[in-house]
Write a protein that binds this DNA or RNA. Structure first.
Lengths: 187, 187
DNA sequence: GTCTATATGGTGATAGAC
DNA sequence: GTCTATCACCATATAGAC
């Protein structure tokens, strides 16, 4: 096994802290302590804490999409893939002890103080929407007959609602409920 | 007009900053500067920044419920009241320039570091749910025949999803979409 | 009750030796 | 590229005069 590079270790440690404690509550000192490096090394790899935040979000986005790809590898029908997406987000919630969506979290934390990051979050959610749209298009190609844009938007709406509610109540009821509703939307 | 009490001014200024900038990004110094008081006065009224946070959330909860009451005063039918609730949250979003839900925001910011606040948020959302349930019960009493708990949960799910999505994308599309779906749920 | 002054520790970031 | 030492600043909170 290859040794983990310093840069990767920094991102890994920082990501974990940003997600669990929040970005503003995580200090540079804590990151270098847990990554077991000197502060000079950190600033050699990242010019500011904000650059580290960007690296964190880029990595989480990659993880999100590759994670879903892996999760839905063996599934062929588009309808099953849509349900796999609900299961995927449910799994992300349980495995993180209901810590919530990385992107919604950072968006809530920065408010309107960091437009570059807000834009990144918006674009990330648009990528998710585009992915869902692909699935709905495939669903229609396989014999379904739903309004693509409308059903795409509805699935997104329900999914985001389920993630937020499950984060607050620390249970998965909202996902099961979402499945039921989407069952009704995809005849 | 009576003069605003110092305590009220502190809460008003802090609330605005907590909501717009985030709790962790708002310092005591900024609060006392904008409230135009000395730091000693602040700590005479609130023993810690966390007490100030509690006062903020309690005030926002009161405002939320009284705001909806006022918004839906003249409406009689339960179905119209449910749609008024969607409009109410849409209005809150537009008037705050899509700053999001106070309670989801603070929950995202504190993570699992402050269970008292997390609990408050959970209880607040349960109060909202109870209010929606009353409306659905009334809907059935007025001739509807829907599963009370299921429809209540669905309305909540859609509403929270709409708020989150509208916060990220800074538009109200998700609310109009939510209305359409709820139209279908309430025959 | 409100004020000023201060305590104590942490923040992000930089300089320069090795 | 990694290290130590240090910067200037800001955080929350307290003490005590008025």
């Amino acid at each position: 096994m290859q040794k983990e590079k310093v840069r990767d270790r920094i991102i890994r440690v920082a990501s974990d802290l940003f997600y669990k404690q929040g970005f503003n509550s995580t200090g540079i000192n804590q990151i270098i302590a847990e990554a077991d490096i000197a502060i000079g090394s950190l600033y050699n790899h990242f010019s500011s804490k904000n650059e580290l935040l960007k690296a964190y979000l880029i990595k989480e986005e990659l993880k999100w999409f590759s994670g879903f790809e892996e999760h839905s590898l063996k599934i062929v029908s588009s309808k099953d893939k849509i349900f796999a997406l609900i299961d995927y987000r449910k799994k992300l919630q349980t495995s993180s002890k209901f810590a919530g969506c990385h992107f919604i979290k950072i968006n809530a934390e920065i408010g309107d103080s960091n437009p570059v990051i807000s834009d990144f979050v918006m674009q990330h959610k648009e990528k998710q929407q585009a992915m869902i749209k692909e699935l709905v298009i495939q669903y229609n190609a396989e014999g379904g007959s739903v309004n693509t844009d409308e059903i795409t938007a509805n699935i997104r709406l329900l999914l985001e609602g389920a993630v937020v509610i499950s984060t607050i109540h620390k249970n998965t009821n909202a996902f099961d409920q979402t499945k039921k509703i989407i069952q009704g939307l995809l005849p």
